[in-house]
Design a protein around this nucleic acid. Sequence first.
RNA 1: GCAGGGGUAGCCUAGCUUGGUCAAAGGCGCCAGAUUCAGGGUCUGGUCUCGUAGGAGUUCGUGGGUUCAAAUCCCUCCCCCUGCACCA
Length: 989
Amino acid sequence: MQPQPPSRISREAHWQERWRSAKLGEARRVPGRRKFFLIFAYPGTSGFMHIGHMRGYSLADALVRYHRMRGEVVFFPGGAHASGLPAVTFAARVARRDPDTMESLRSMHLDDTAIRDLEVPENAARFLGEAYWVTWERFGMVMDRTAYVTTIDPDYQQFIRWQFARLSRLGYLKQKSYFAPYCPRSGPVSVDPSETDISQGGSAEVVTYTLVPFTLPDGRRLLAATLRPETVFGATNLWVAPGETLVEWKHHGHVDLLSPPALAKALDQWGGTAGEEIPASAFLADQVTIPWVPHPLPILESRLVNPDRGTGIVMSVPAHAPVDWVALEGLSPTSRGTIEPLVRAVLEVEGIPQGSSEQELLKGSGWPAQRAARNLGITTLEQSSQLAEATERLYRAELARGRMTVGPFVGRPVGEARELVREILRQADEAAEIREFSEPVICRCGERVVIRRIPDQWFLAYGDPQWKSRVREHARTMQFLPPEYREELETILDWFEDRPAVRQGRWLGTPFPLDPRWIIEPIADSTLYPAYYVVRRFVAQGRLKPEQLTPSFFDHVFLGEGPGEPTVPPELQSEVRQEFLYWYPLDVNLGGKEHKRVHFPPFLYNHAALLPPDLNPRCIVINWWTTSYTGEKISKKDVKGGAVPPVDDALARWGADGIRLYHAIAGSLFQDVEWDPSTCSSASERVDEVARILRGLWGRGGDAVAGMAPGERHVDRWFSTRISEVIERATSHLESADFRSAAQAIYVDLVAILRRYEARGGAHAALLGRLAHAWTRMLVPFTPHVAEELGEGHFPSLVSSESWPQPGEFLRDPGALREEETLIALEEDIAALLRTWKSPPAEARLFVASPWKRWVEEIRSRAPEGDRRRGDIGGFMREARQDPRLTPYLDRVARYLSQVPAPTSPSRAGPQDPDTETALLHDALPYFVHRFGIPRWTVLREEDGGPYDPLGRRTRAAPGRPAIYLVPGEDPASPEAGGSSRPRARSSP
RNA sequence: GCAGGGGUAGCCUAGCUUGGUCAAAGGCGCCAGAUUCAGGGUCUGGUCUCGUAGGAGUUCGUGGGUUCAAAUCCCUCCCCCUGCACCA
């Protein structure tokens, strides 16, 4: 095999260049024409792309290409989301010459100076954005380069300033306190798995403890920290660590006691001052009280208490906390004797399913915690992992199925009671909670990161009921793919709350217009941006300067408010306005499933808040991921580890077309697909195969455009009908973003149909030519390069700008379809028979059913579906007796009805009369000879075939389903001629 | 826990909204045949079990139910994946 002279990559690059020079991607407003405006959620600038990313992108391109061919005017812009930490992280990797990053950069032929540039986050972001664009183009995407923007471009930031000023004016920004990670030395930090700011603890979570105050006789309070404040009603005592020191925390008019590490947290989060340090043992003789518990509580020591966790003071609820129960059992008999009578359960769990793990956990008698500990075999505090498990499982069961049995919230579910208790505590004292990390978090500078309260944090008021209901109202008018997202969005909105809009620290983004010390948070600056793509084109053309994009400019352009910006010529300003009104509303926003909760809701909120309802988006399409075999989203690791090839290798091996088709065909868009190189290979081969077939079709005088003349063979009419159906199906699947089915129709079904047509001896040149013409065009959405290659010379210009085929371009004949179906069914029957034959038969005889059987089927087809299938023989016989035509056959009718089931649907009934059926079979005989290797075929009428049918098979004949008699090879027992009636039969050659 | 999705033949995946044409599409793998010196590629057929007559039996996570009829509708349980927030 010689390598193809120009490589796949260079052939594809050729067409990419042609599309560029033809400005195919450039949005051009055509008043009066329908438009299609699609964006995908632009990627964050975190690193290089791999083929997994291309799934959503290339399918977006397929959708856009389809709409372009439908004659719609298309706007398909793209950009890069440079805000936030990713570019900072990338730049940091460059700065420390991270080997993987360096390898990628070197493979792009960057010299040292260029690499040094990338140590600046802004440069890194722009560089990566450009790299994304190049990748998109290499995958055959045709987008509007003149609208390309990154979120750190000055003009984009002008737009964001306007957006936030406007939100503020509308009252959708508000200030309240917020708890954020903070390094005492370096300032605000971000705790996330990429560990950009921190050196340890990226996966730490924030744990919120409720502080339950227990009052000492002198009025000071011991603050117990708990995750389950609703169990306070069952508290029996407090625990402190042996030898622990407590320290006074003076705040809000209280003097409270907690451990020194807890004091630090308390001061960070709530302020106040530190007081005296006192050994915890000093309180062991005291008792504390709390209104919710009807008796005073003693203070005891236990090793279970860790002074670093919570407040270093624990409220003991032996009935519901396995740890407390075990600690109680380990007490001295005296202490135990005072505590045990105080133990009580405060909730009960109901409706435990049979055989569940909950039932297993709680079987037996005693307090719930006692049972959990016993069932897991726990006797001492040393069994810490079992204790943790018991605790987790019990807590989960009680939260899920528990109801309060004690206290003011009797009958309430545990979760509700918990919130109510918290709320009461908050009412009494603002500082009713304390937050800490689930594991230590260490800043890059080495300092331990704490949680600090920011009293004046700006929020986007997504919890605002009116705003939320506007979003809901609009969402009802939208289309969602998959449709389930509509319902999911409802529940997401239920808990969607105010969200921090800005933050401080070293990240990229737009300074907050109301207070430039803050930077707008990355999710917040990427919500209304499709609107900005429209304006960006004017900036890119040099017709608008960033500094002209003032709030009054945007007020005018987006909202038609006010005279606009004085430094912009009024004609230009109104042109921008018209352009905006032409493209808006957005038709499709396509994004990965990770955006369901993060991007799409704010996207809808901001549109709802800032634009009139008729300019709100119309459709959201969500694509799932390509995962690696581990089930994870493909990551750099997979590329590095060889599980997924780098983009260059992939393009060389499979071609952009092959990979695009793979993405379409490997699985539904709405499901994760495991990356599988062999499936990708087969997709790529499928592209080659279709190309080979189409070259052949074009070569056979494919440009002939003659219509179908009447009187063609029925296979021709069948073929034409099937092509028409494929076009129809592909079209409707593309409309509903069912790319898999569309691709299957175009690349699989059509091939199979053509194969059958050719096997059946079909060779209608004009029809094949028209197929070539239509099929080539249908290749554009998924495999645009090969479409162009095949269409070159056959279309006036680019195939990409041709129109999408119409089903009406191909004559349809349902009768021909039905007839061919009967042949296919017959083939299946014969194949089933042959499976049991050891040596091939010498001859096959086919018996076409007698006319009266067609009349019987008429009766059956009138019956309701259920009766027809079940075979209401008595009823059918009654009707048959009414039909004079059937009178001579009544005895055989009964046998037929019981022996031969009705066709499963009327459309399967086959040709309407025996002559047509006979002709049909004759037409297929050459094909059958070839297909089955049986040399001799005979078609007979049921009523004529007696002597030819020693086994009496012919009574099984039904309309559209000839009876079959196979003549054994060795024994030519067939009576050659000589029957009483001369059969109207003919042998095949 | 809450929310969403899912469990289909050796594997990956369609079908499930609108029950019957479903022993269940397509792909991969495997088997046989054709082409070929051979391999690869391509093409054809096969690939749950039994069966020399188009048939029968048993299948679509588990167990029930509805129905003349269930992969498809209802209920139960088991298991898996994802998200739960400032992280793009």
